[in-house]
């Protein structure tokens, strides 16, 4: 297999054609243009202009254009690929694909503009600490965030509990690396590599050693669990109490149109507003109506019932014929 590095020029400084207009967008059949999450997959090549000189794509939460006219070896202006190996012993290396994190104008991002590096194809044995150590040569690293796949929501993660949300097993990941200074990003884009994940001074555990340490970590302290549960439940009880107090407060107070909301307190409300309950009511109505109806009373009803029976038989017959055809095709009638 020949190894040819990525060859796209990322044209930010030159003059790319404008982002696709809405009409163009419709023409390409891609739904509406300000593709929110769900419409466009991250990184998908969405449109190619007729001249094939430029590609628009949705990446990192923003429209980016790629100029296809200049193809060259990996360089400062292309999508840079940094070779990365587990240790000296390995022959072949994976490539980290990096670019500056940028978003479309107007969109917000939790990661600071200019200072954030977006890294693709992070191998499973590469941890946060490891990545931060590897890139610290380009400038001091403020934070590293690893994700299974590029996530557009970028919502700040809720503090997850190690008791209730066990970490999934990592595969290849993407990373957002925030440097303290914009210079770090520039330096990282020019990085040649190859980077070594596990070195003499900083060995990374894999295999049996890793599993044993993970097993040891999985044996948790019940006291810590108890403490966490207690804190959560306290907060929950407080929240419930507040809600109840608010509901009580609102009770009996007419709104601006003069309506007063009356709620029955207690374990069972009068008629729960659930779908199941409304279905039950409908069903009851239907049964009531069916009881009143007369069956096979009029001559035409009789006739219709007969016809219905015949139609059923015909349908069954057709089905059986089809089944038989299939059996014949499968040679199911050769007894031995």
């Amino acid at each position: 297999m020949t190894r040819t590095a990525c060859t796209h020029t990322h044209s930010t400084s030159q003059h790319p054609p404008p982002p696709p207009t809405y009409a163009k967008w419709k023409e390409w059949g891609c739904g509406h243009r300000d593709g929110t999450k769900g419409d466009i997959e991250e990184g998908s090549l969405v449109a190619q202009l007729a001249s094939a000189s430029c590609v628009w794509w949705w990446w990192g939460g923003a429209w980016c254009s790629l100029n296809l006219t200049h193809r060259c070896r990996p360089g400062p202006t292309s999508l840079p690929a940094i070779p990365v190996k587990f240790s000296e012993k390995q022959q072949a290396s994976h490539y980290l694909y990096v670019r500056e994190h940028s978003v479309r104008e107007g969109a917000t991002s939790t990661w600071p503009q200019k200072r954030t590096l977006f890294v693709l194809n992070v191998p499973p044995y590469c941890t946060k600490e490891c990545l931060s150590r590897l890139l610290s040569c380009c400038g001091s690293v403020q934070s590293v965030e690893l994700q299974a796949k590029p996530d557009l929501a970028e919502s700040p993660k809720e503090p997850s509990s190690k008791f209730f949300d066990p970490k999934p097993i990592p595969g290849f990941q993407v990373a957002h690396v925030v440097f303290q200074k914009p210079g770090g990003v520039v330096a990282a884009l020019a990085l040649k590599g190859p980077l070594l994940i596990s070195t003499e001074s900083h060995p990374v555990k894999t295999g049996v050693h890793k599993w044993i340490s993970e097993y040891a970590d999985s044996v948790l302290d019940p006291e810590a669990l108890r403490a966490e549960v207690d804190t959560f439940m306290e907060a929950y009880d407080q929240k419930m109490a507040e809600e109840e107090a608010q509901a009580k407060e609102e009770e009996g107070v007419p709104d601006e149109e003069g309506w007063v909301k009356v709620t029955r307190r207690g374990r069972r409300s009068a008629l729960p507003r659930t779908e199941a309950a409304s279905l039950r009511v409908l069903e009851r109505e239907k049964r009531k109506r069916a009881r009143k109806e007369l069956l096979n009373f009029y001559a035409w009803q009789h006739r219709e019932t007969k016809m219905e029976h015949l139609a059923q038989l015909r349908k069954k017959f057709e089905e059986d014929k089809q089944r038989l055809e299939l059996m014949r095709a499968q040679r199911k009638f050769r007894p031995y």
Binding site: E41, G43, W59, H94, Y97, F172
Partner: peptide, 9 residues
């Protein structure tokens, strides 16, 4: 971007 997993360009 999401389909990179262990591939190279």
């Amino acid at each position: 971007a999401s389909g990179m997993k262990g591939r190279m360009a």
